[in-house]
């Protein structure tokens, strides 16, 4: 499943690197400010949004990512259902609202399969504060995206979120990553 993004990352110019980086920061801003509808608009109609499971395996047994089971296996439509839920009056887990930060770093870009697409890898560090709890929850990992330009606008056409923990220590995944 790896896109094998090799370093040095010289295949896109700094202007494009800047544009896509700013796009991902904008996306993080929308999520951190509960602008879920606006976030949903950033996704292409054919988006594949997945979050496979990380597992502990011995090296001889190969990959430590299980693709068969996920935390997210979403289409634009199922994500719309999730987004709409957050605007109901009974999505208790986000009402009162949690406070979230998505830190997106280590952005590596290379041209994708189509001329208007780029394969983008980023690391994420997500922190969440709930009610008056002292402990801040966190989840870390990386994302493999396909970012596509549609009618002059950047859109997310695919995202695979790979967590580093085999046992998540966030009490739920009410956020999008």
């Amino acid at each position: 499943m790896s896109m094998e993004l090799q370093f040095p990352n010289t295949q896109v110019n700094s202007e494009l690197q800047h544009e896509i980086t700013q796009f991902l920061y904008h996306e993080a801003y929308l999520l951190d400010h509960h602008m879920y509808q606006e976030w949903h608009d950033l996704l292409t109609d054919d988006i594949i949004y997945r979050m496979p499971l990380r597992v502990t395996t011995e090296r001889r047994d190969g990959s430590n990512i299980v693709d068969d089971m996920t935390y997210f296996e979403e289409t634009k439509k199922s994500l719309e259902t999730r987004v709409k839920r957050l605007y109901t009056k009974s999505a208790w887990v986000e009402d009162p609202r949690t406070r979230q930060r998505h830190y997106i770093t280590n952005i590596m870009i290379k041209p994708g399969a189509n001329s208007d697409e780029y394969n983008v890898r980023s690391y994420f560090y997500f922190k969440r504060s709930r009610a008056s709890e002292h402990q801040i929850e966190e989840i870390i990992g990386e994302r493999e995206d396909i970012i596509r330009k549609v009618d002059g606008q950047w859109r997310i056409a695919a995202r695979t979120i790979i967590p580093d923990q085999t046992v998540l220590t966030v009490m739920n995944l009410s956020m999008f990553l």
Binding site: Y71, E73, T81, R130, L168
Partner: peptide, 22 residues
């Protein structure tokens, strides 16, 4: 897909369960 959307840590039902357990 029905399972992932409804139960487990990202499940649209289970998310609200975790809130009340806590």
């Amino acid at each position: 897909k029905s399972y992932v959307g409804s139960f487990g840590p990202s499940g649209t039902l289970e998310q609200d369960d975790t809130e009340v357990w806590a």
